[in-house]
Write a protein that binds this DNA or RNA. Structure first.
Lengths: 230, 230
DNA sequence: CAGGAAAAGTGCGTACACGCAAGTTTGCGT
DNA sequence: ACGCAAACTTGCGTGTACGCACTTTTCCTG
């Protein structure tokens, strides 16, 4: 259940995936983001250029993946892992903040690299959207939704919760809020970079995330109340 | 102020833009989405292939733009246009529903075309993200935010409203909810297409949109209350 | 353990996105 | 009316994304 798909296959797949993104990040740090071809990355990872495009659909995606790897799964697990006593809103906020503060310390130079390239900034911001899928399941689990990825309920039964799966909308909104926070963080980082501050203000990321998620707390609370009443 | 940029320039620009997307849609309807090259579209619109890429960054974008043209601006105007008496939440929901029901009738065959191609579905769904920008200003106007696209408030002043611009997060969440609704609508359309129903269930789109936006109503209400108390 | 199906890797060819450096049009100031 | 500056268009070249057909690897089942 933990590794779902059998064993050696999936293992190798993750290995090459990590090898590719690691190579991409290393080369980008060495030569600068614009002096890295996909052939170089593929060669450094020991696969064919064509295989590279089976894993990543853009150079930026591979580089950013080295920083954001598995973040989605960790956030979803963190949300699902909080005791049932704490509210959904705080569970989500804390999970997001926790999982975004740790890697900020890990690859500081990588983040600095990202801020230097608009394309990398875009890919980094887009990576926030990846948390939506896992988050849907985690939120649905806390709301008691049976199966959020089932068909669109073709038929008259609307189910206990309102609409086309509240969990989906909430997860998408959380992802959107995270994206907004990352955008602002990058803007601030770029600004303080052109100024004197050579370090990324990583300390402010948690605050930005909390502030961005704050407007969604009423929605999360309301959904939770609605779910409890059934 | 209404046309901002002088006159003839912007006029011609919109003309070629429309010519391009109209040609793209027409050719896609005639030959099928996969038998249209960008050279064909450019030629049909009377511009060079290179110019095409100055307007659209993918073939799908051009086709979808023929259906979604100006939707963002109309939604934002509709939100800003509702009288100040009605709540923010209902203003947003009604504006979105209104502006998404009309075009559904306009290009029914175009939407049918979109459902036949996964790439077009993706582009159509992504087009929901375009409403975010204009919506930020409209919501910010209703919340009394001074200037939402100002710098990220470098400094200690947090301003009257919480966080990194509530309007931005709310607009992004609304866009995300719309995206979810469109995804489900396309899924249902594809399902009923493989079945017997040859018509797009455009009647259900408003319901899907309302249902998708419903979980966000508490957040919109809370933001409005917060804004009023200042 | 053998055999076959499913999945991953690979090479090739095509279409495409986009930076760059002209050339051309538009708009504004005087 | 003139001319300059900014914006739009265009051709070219490079690097890239991806479908397709094929080979190789992995896994399951009898």
């Amino acid at each position: 259940m933990t590794t779902r798909r059998t064993g050696l296959r999936e293992q190798k797949k993750q290995a090459t995936r990590e090898a590719l993104s690691a190579a991409a990040l290393r080369l980008a740090l060495e030569r600068g983001p614009d002096n890295v071809r996909v052939d170089d990355i593929a060669e450094a990872a020991g696969v064919s250029p064509r295989t590279y495009n089976n894993y990543f659909s853009s150079r930026e995606q591979a580089i950013v993946a080295a920083v954001t790897s598995e973040r989605e799964v960790r956030i979803a697990a963190a949300v699902a892992g909080r005791p049932a006593g704490v509210g959904l809103a705080v569970a989500v906020v804390e999970a997001v903040v926790d999982q975004f503060t740790a890697p900020g310390e890990a690859g500081r130079d990588a983040l600095l690299l990202i801020t230097t390239s608009p394309a990398l900034c875009g890919a980094f911001v887009d990576s926030a959207g990846a948390i939506e899928g896992p988050l849907v399941e985690a939120i649905a689990g806390r709301l008691g939704d049976p199966d959020p990825d089932a068909g669109p309920d073709v038929g008259p039964d609307v189910g206990p919760d309102a609409g086309p799966h509240t969990a989906r909308v909430l997860a998408a909104s959380v992802a959107a809020a995270v994206r907004v926070a990352l955008e602002q963080w990058l803007r601030a980082a770029a600004a303080s970079f052109t100024a004197g501050g050579l370090v990324v203000p990583s300390g402010s990321l948690p605050e930005l995330l909390r502030a961005a998620l704050a407007p969604l707390v009423p929605a999360l609370d309301a959904a939770e109340r609605r779910a409890r009443r059934s």
